[in-house]
Design a protein around this nucleic acid. Sequence first.
DNA 1: AACAGTCTTTGATTCAAATCAATGCAAAGC
DNA 2: GCTTTGCATTGATTTGAATCAAAGACTGTT
Lengths: 237, 237
Amino acid sequence: MKTSLVAVDFHGQGCADCAVRGFSVCASLDQFEMREFEQLSRRVSFGSCETVFAQEDTSSCFYNLLDGVMRLYKLLPDGRRQIVGFVLPGDFVGMTTEERHGFSADAIGPVTVCQFAKLPFGRFAEDKPNLLRRMNQLAVQELNQARDHMVLLGRRSAEEKVATFLVGWRDRLVELRGPSNIVPLPMSRQDIADYLGLTIETVSRTFTKLERDGVIVILPGGVSLRDSARAEALAAA
Amino acid sequence: MKTSLVAVDFHGQGCADCAVRGFSVCASLDQFEMREFEQLSRRVSFGSCETVFAQEDTSSCFYNLLDGVMRLYKLLPDGRRQIVGFVLPGDFVGMTTEERHGFSADAIGPVTVCQFAKLPFGRFAEDKPNLLRRMNQLAVQELNQARDHMVLLGRRSAEEKVATFLVGWRDRLVELRGPSNIVPLPMSRQDIADYLGLTIETVSRTFTKLERDGVIVILPGGVSLRDSARAEALAAA
DNA sequence: AACAGTCTTTGATTCAAATCAATGCAAAGC
DNA sequence: GCTTTGCATTGATTTGAATCAAAGACTGTT
């Protein structure tokens, strides 16, 4: 919840050796464009639980996550929280035409982002169809995810929600780090609850039930998907 | 649920006199581009409850709604349904990079759309930054709406859900047709329930409660927002 | 006007998840 | 080593919305 900035580097260590170069927005840029793009960005790091930007903040920057995990969430006036997404390296965050972000983002564990000021970024992107198409693709992808999540929130049981979350999170990590059924869960139970529209107690009970049923094994800091097929069945059903 | 096509015109009656010309995707096109664009589109009409496209269909077209109202929804294998949005004139539907649509769209009452084949549209848009930026804007707008809806689905009570829906729907109609607190509801109670993650009975009871509390008056085919402020308070809270 | 068919409303009852209330557990600090 | 602190789990109880079950109210048709 704090908002102190922890570390800043000058214009990153170059984009050429950037960990997310190959699959992020910037994948759409050629060598020369990349040079120019590099000048617009700064690497910034945040400590665990620090706020990268808040719901009510003027949206002056875009962010490309380089390392770590973030949560995006919306708060109701009375404090109820809905997490609208978890962010992994390569994800592009903060695209909006609105004056304000409309949701908050904070670090789950230490995080490094590639930050762009909105205006120069806009000017740069303005006449670059490649980049615009790529941004479109990312927006549409997110929209599809958002719609899937609506189905989950509106129409699925607690057990289906948790199973869907675990399978989906595993799949995202597999894409990033290669296949494994060990699923690290850097976020808290409360985060998971607020993502799935449940309470922390229900999440905990559901984890326990899934373990009793031999679907998962609960580990410190994550779970192992013991019976991946059964979890996937719950997620699909 | 049927899928028979009801009427086709040749290349529309021109875009110049199109009802949604001013605020849809095409608002970003100049006079000359518009001419070319016109050639890519066909006006197509659908009868009440006909399916414009289905979840599992190959996504070969984009649609711009000209007249009527559509519902967009996803079905789970066991038949549970989540409506992910209602579509009003000017809304652009079907943007996706995926092979399949991933959600279904059908007409609520008679509907006219402006239909584009995906491939020629893609070729046309490819090098038009204006159009690409406009599409981006629309996608991001929808994403924001989707996130708001996640909060509603995950964290709000039945009464808040219904009030939020009524206020939001009124606001969209106001934008389209000018100010009024008479809110036509062309969709069924079942549709509203599937949009809000409730059952039809709960929606009905909540309408009744809101009427008892003097917030709305239930009319045939809609409601009147009697105490708009109270409804907005419920929606914000 | 009467009928069928489809929605909508209302009532009674059940149930899944929330709430309330401890207890357990592990890392951080003294 | 022993507290403190902040999660996470488990248990007991409540509750908001779902389910089950009729009864009304429209719409369109004959």
